[in-house]
């Protein structure tokens, strides 16, 4: 595909030729940071996709699934599977939630003759955002984007290990003018978020996020990027508490050029890096 040469902001498939993509927005993006949702839509449209947002979505069900409540997890999963029926692709601005749909829904309905095949079908169509752009649509670069910042990138665990998301965000970031990426040491270590883990075992989570936040600050980067809002809220909360001058943003915001809103956890009119 040649979509990588489409200029930013253009909607080449207004003629409805491109793939029909359902956006699974994730509960954290929906509630806390709609900018990430709009950035995702913009990136998908620039890649030639027709984007729709099914109304009948809330959460992927991980809080129930990881708490051992398989029944509620399955009920929520069925809702997601039904809501995203018929889309060519389902794109998620989170490795964790995408991993839930891709890896865990099929295992949730392993022995279910009705929902098992539907879960498999959804799994095959579901992608984490940066992985979708690079691996599926063949986008090599985001064009005409400039972000003057020194950034570091945190690989969220589910995306990294369940979906092999590592090179894709870096490849896209490399095409953003003015941006320098400084890699984190020990980039494969968890930030300590872990969904409900961070409130069930707050002291252990605190040790983990403290070490990660100090590592982030030690890179000298002024901005922390990641593809998962959970890790970003955890890390930005810790960076602020430690008084470190590092902003946090979802990678989609930078790739889509939507950095006119304050960074995560920062004041309106404050640091807009």
């Amino acid at each position: 595909m040649t979509t990588s040469h489409v200029p930013a902001g253009a909607h080449p498939n207004d003629g409805h030729a491109g793939p029909r993509v359902g956006l699974f927005v994730t509960c954290l993006v929906d509630l806390f940071r709609p900018t990430v949702g709009f950035a995702t839509v913009a990136l998908l449209e620039r890649a030639g996709c027709r984007v729709e947002v099914p109304r009948h979505q809330t959460c992927c069900g991980q809080p129930a699934y990881n708490s051992g409540d398989r029944k509620e997890a399955a009920a929520i999963a069925r809702q997601v599977i039904a809501a995203f029926d018929g889309y060519d692709h389902v794109v998620v601005p989170s490795g964790s939630c995408a991993g839930m749909l891709r890896v865990h829904y099929p295992s949730l309905f392993e022995d279910d003759p009705d929902w098992g095949p539907r879960a498999q079908d959804l799994a095959g169509r579901t992608h984490e955002l940066t992985s979708f752009l690079v691996d599926v649509t063949g986008v090599q670069a985001v064009n005409d984007q400039r972000h003057d910042a020194t950034v570091t990138y945190h690989d969220a665990c589910s995306g990294l290990r369940e979906l092999r998301v590592k090179a894709q965000p870096r490849q896209l970031l490399a095409s953003v003018a003015g941006l320098t990426l400084l890699e984190l040491p020990d980039t494969e270590t968890c930030c300590g978020f872990g969904g409900t883990f961070c409130v069930k075992y707050p002291e252990i989570s605190d040790r983990m996020v403290t070490e990660k936040a100090e590592m982030v600050a030690s890179t000298g980067a002024d901005t922390l990027l990641a593809g998962d809002l959970g890790c970003l809220m955890n890390l930005s909360g810790k960076l602020h508490r430690l008084g470190k001058a590092v902003s946090a943003r979802h990678v989609a915001e930078v790739l889509a050029g939507m950095t006119d809103v304050p960074p995560i956890g920062a004041a309106d009119g404050g640091d807009r890096r």
Binding site: V25, L31, P34, G37, F38, P202, M233, G237, H240, R241
Partner: peptide
Amino acid sequence: HRDFPAPQGQTFQQA
């Protein structure tokens, strides 16, 4: 242990 980032205000679904 850490600050809690405030939401942007509007939900994505509303926006």
